[in-house]
Amino acid sequence: MRAVIAEDLYLLREGLSRLLEAHDFEIAAAVDTAPGLLAALLEHTPDVAVVDVRLPPTFTDDGLRAALDARRQLPGLPVLVLSQYVEQLYARELLADQAGAVGYLLKDRVFNDDQFVDAIRAVAGGGTVMDSEVVSKLLGRRSRDEPITRLTAREREVLELMAEGRSNSAIAQRLYISEKAVGKHSTNIFAKLDLAPSNDDNRRVLAVLAFLNS
């Protein structure tokens, strides 16, 4: 799998490269600026891009903008955005094109390399991975709103893990329930959120989106 890395801090960039190489990724390019990122994405069209939000030249959200720009030109280009902090606003912007294959994680998730690499693979496979902090805020704030109040506590837990990009089997393992039970819970969630039956992956993305855009 070919990856492009955009990170302005040398140590982190090298660390990410080594981590991905150790997990059988091929580093197509490792860049340190937003314009460099856009050029690299358009040139290499990698299987996945790992992008730091804050990049030169302005050190604000240049990385995010470059990633969104690239996705406008190459729809569905898998992008995992890393940041020192997470904002729902940015999560919404990433999810807005409804094409999936996006991730938004806190930088410290890199500490758990297995989960981190799983997340990258999930994004590369077209899934949606949102940081648990985004998800928990989302669920917390929606407490007085309509759709979420219809979910049971267990269904919320399932949705939370779903939004974090876990597969059904990972969710089952985490909650100590059977995979079949997870499937039942997700069907209930989709029903309660009025998501029309379609391909399961797409519905998972839409379930997360439904919240973010509600």
């Binding site: 904002e87 606003l89 704030r141 007085r144 709103d145």
Partner: peptide
């Protein structure tokens, strides 16, 4: 503008 929008998203109210 966007910071207030982000704040609105983080607030447990509509």
């Amino acid at each position: 503008a966007d910071a207030v929008r982000a704040l609105a998203l983080d607030t447990p109210l509509r």
